[in-house]
């Protein structure tokens, strides 16, 4: 029983994801507007136009940890940003607090340059390891935000309390800040320090809003469906518990 419920949830999510990905729709699904993500799209274009850099910080969640999903979502967003801004005079820089994530960020930026047809513009140092501990990673990311003419700081991934230092550095440089994390305590910090923080699972919605990948959109729709199912299940279980059925 304990194994059947999560297995069923996984199967249901897989079916929804595949069905929503491959079903041809006449029009793309409509999602609610998220101001921060709209601002991110605009900021990417502005960075290309005025020759400044985008700093994308992926957090410190390794792919083999429970925080790996947030890192995967951040990598997908990095890919889309990289494709849009790879032709800029100053291509984007990705910092991370995990070695595996740093290597993947390099590969993602290289793939973005290849996709945009500007292979020669890729620099291996565009994907960097900020540090192995959270605060050393924050220190390394703060130097990028202050020294490399960054116009927009995008903090997407798994962050802890150290995200407060990154937001403060962004504010000092008068840069645009778009931040999202999966950690609740970090979300509280972002709520206080960022102008438009992304709360909860909006981190996983970012790739679907920025890009046009049908799989991303299908994933977001599947999340919505599953969320409603979980809500109904929780309410039903609470009611049954109150009644005494369970």
């Amino acid at each position: 029983m304990t194994q059947a419920l999560p297995l069923g949830l996984v199967i249901l999510a897989a079916v929804l994801l595949l069905a929503l990905t491959f079903i041809k729709r006449k029009s793309p699904p409509a999602f609610r507007e998220i101001a921060a993500l709209a601002r991110l799209k605009k900021a990417a274009g502005l960075a290309v136009e005025d020759g400044t850099r985008l700093h994308v910080s992926l957090g410190r969640g390794g792919l083999v940890s429970p925080r790996g999903a947030a890192s995967l979502s951040a990598l997908a967003l990095l890919r889309q940003i990289g494709e849009q801004t790879s032709i800029s005079d100053r291509p984007p820089v990705a910092t991370s607090g995990d070695p595996v994530l740093a290597a993947l960020s390099q590969d993602t930026l290289q793939a973005a340059c290849q996709s945009a047809g500007v292979d020669e513009l890729f620099q291996p140092t565009s994907g960097r390891l900020g540090g192995l501990t959270p605060f050393s990673y924050a220190a390394g990311a703060m130097t990028v935000a202050r020294q490399e003419q960054v116009s927009t700081d995008v903090l997407m991934g798994d962050f802890g309390a150290e995200v407060g230092l990154l937001t403060e550095a962004s504010e000092r440089e008068n840069s645009t800040l778009i931040a999202a994390t999966s950690e609740p305590s970090a979300q509280a910090i972002l709520f206080a320090s960022a102008a438009e923080p992304l709360v909860g699972e909006e981190l996983f919605a970012a790739p679907a809003y920025i890009g046009n990948d049908p799989a991303q959109r299908a994933s977001l729709q599947a999340q919505d469906i599953l969320r409603w199912l979980v809500i109904l299940a929780l309410l039903a279980a609470a009611g049954m518990k109150m009644v005494g059925l369970i």
Binding site: L9, V10, A13, A14, L17, P66, G68, A69, A70, L72, S73, S182, E201, L203, F204, S219, L220, A222, Q223, L226, R227, V230
Partner: peptide, 8 residues
């Protein structure tokens, strides 16, 4: 849930 769909 987001991690689940991302992993899938």
């Amino acid at each position: 849930l987001g991690a689940l769909t991302t992993g899938l």
